[in-house]
Every structure is written in C-alpha cells, then in structure tokens.
Amino acid sequence: MTKDLEAAKAFYTQLFGWSYVVGDEETYGGYTTAGIDGLPIAGLMENDPDNGFPDVWCTYLRVEDIEATVDQVQAHNGHVYMPPMEVPEQGKMAMIGDPSGLGVGLWQAGGHAGYQKMGEQGTPVWHELHTTKFETATKFYREALDWELEVMSDSDEFRYQTLGAGNEAKAGVMDIAHFKDPKLAGWKVYFAVDDTDQTVADAIAAGGSEVSPAVDSDFGRLAVIADPTGAEFYVLQANG
C-alpha cells in the first residue's frame, strides 16, 4: 500500500528491476502487479492519504476455503477486518487479525495463484510475524489456520517457530516482547538480494532510507529499508 504509486514503481524498478502490469481501473482499481521475467512477484495498490494508515507491505496467506477460514478465525478470537470479497477472475481476499490485532491477508486463488518466483534477486524469500504476544499468536495460527509449527529456538533471548521444518519452512513467528519498541510488531516481508550492502546504498540513492543497518545472521546478511513513502521491508543476502 503506497500513497505515491508512481514513486514506488520507480523506486522498486531501480532497486530490483521490477516491471509492472496495471489492472483495469474500473474492475481492479488500478491494482498494479510487479514482476520479474514476466512472472508476478508482488503487488502495489494506492493508499488513500486521507485514511490515516501508513504505507506498508502486506503478507497474504493462501487458503483453500476463505469463508471457512474466516469462520475459524472468529471462532478462535481473531479479528475480521475485511470479510471475504471476490476479485473478478483472480480469486477471493480477506483481511484478518490474530487476537492481539496484528493483521494479515488471506487469499483463495482463482486465476491468480500468487507470486511465481522466490529466493532470487528482487523476489520474496521469507515472511515473518513479529509479536509481543508469542503464545497467543502461535496458538491462534495452530488452531485457526491449522499450522504445524516447529520450534527453532525457545530461549528468553530468541523465541522462534516456523511454519514447516527446515528447508520446507514457509514463514516464521518471532517473540519480540523484549524489544523496546512495540510498534515493531506485525508481519514482515523479506526480499532476496545478491548484495545487502549494495542494495542499501542503492535504496538510499533511489530515495529510500536505511531503517536498520546491515547485520550478519545465521541465515545471511540482512537489513531493513524503507521506500520513499515509508513502507518498510527486509532484504536478505543468503549464506552460501
């Protein structure tokens, strides 16, 4: 979601080499699909400046039956921010939240099956929920969305579970209760890059900013960047 669609398109083209297909205004409200090599990898949508919501990247979780999933969300004390709606010829979408209010999208695929490239330069590589209510969040996703969560770490310093195990993991949930800024809670998207430090420099040159400097982790070198209107995302240069 971006308050300046043209600025966002220019930024991500310069940073990642994205190209765009703009949907019909009457049918899709100008929804813009970003792609690499002709394959969809992300989407951009105008964020009305008057609604008071910050610009943000949103993760969508694929589900087989969106109405049944929303019923499960409500049955397990989750929130429904936007009930299921039909996207003509593409699928169905909804916006929900866990019991603590952290929002995420749901997508039931029709003609659009989601992103078609991952783990390559400029494409999604990971999705992660940062929560101060770790037990509540993991319980919700296990029960409401039938996630099979694997414990990666369970220490006071680093508490983390993944959807699936090892190389088959699809997403992560991290406890940030010990962080000083509770506003850091929410779903985060990571994009793969070949060189994290160069990507940070390129982002600044393109009108973005460095939110958190590049650091080395067990999974590679990562940093947090904001685009020109403040939408934050991670970049990750994988090990090996």
Rank of each mutant, 00 (worst) to 15 (best):
T196K: 03
K117P: 01
V200P: 03
A185S: 11
L106R: 00
N239G: 09
Y20T: 07
P228T: 06
D195A: 12
N51D: 14
G35C: 00
P83G: 03
A7I: 07
T13M: 01
L5G: 05
P49K: 11
E232T: 13
F158L: 13
K180E: 12
Q237M: 07
D181V: 10
H79Y: 11
A185E: 15
G230P: 02
G164I: 06
T136Q: 15
R62A: 14
V70H: 14
V22Y: 05
L39Y: 04
T33V: 09
E128S: 09
G29V: 07
K188I: 10
V87S: 08
T132C: 09
R62Y: 03
G78N: 05
A94T: 05
T123G: 13
F53I: 10
G111A: 06
A34K: 04
E143S: 10
G101N: 01
I41W: 04
G186N: 06
D98N: 15
R221T: 15
W147T: 10
M174I: 14
N51R: 05
K9L: 03
E89I: 04
D55Y: 02
Y81C: 01
G23M: 08
P49H: 11
A42Y: 07
E148F: 00
W18F: 03
K139N: 06
N77K: 09
L163W: 09
M152N: 11
H112L: 05
P99G: 11
G220N: 11
T162I: 03
K180V: 10
G35H: 03
Y141V: 01
A165S: 14
L44H: 07
L15M: 00
D37T: 15
G119T: 10
S209F: 02
Q161V: 13
G110E: 05
A10D: 15
D156V: 06
H127Q: 13
D197T: 06
V70R: 12
I204H: 01
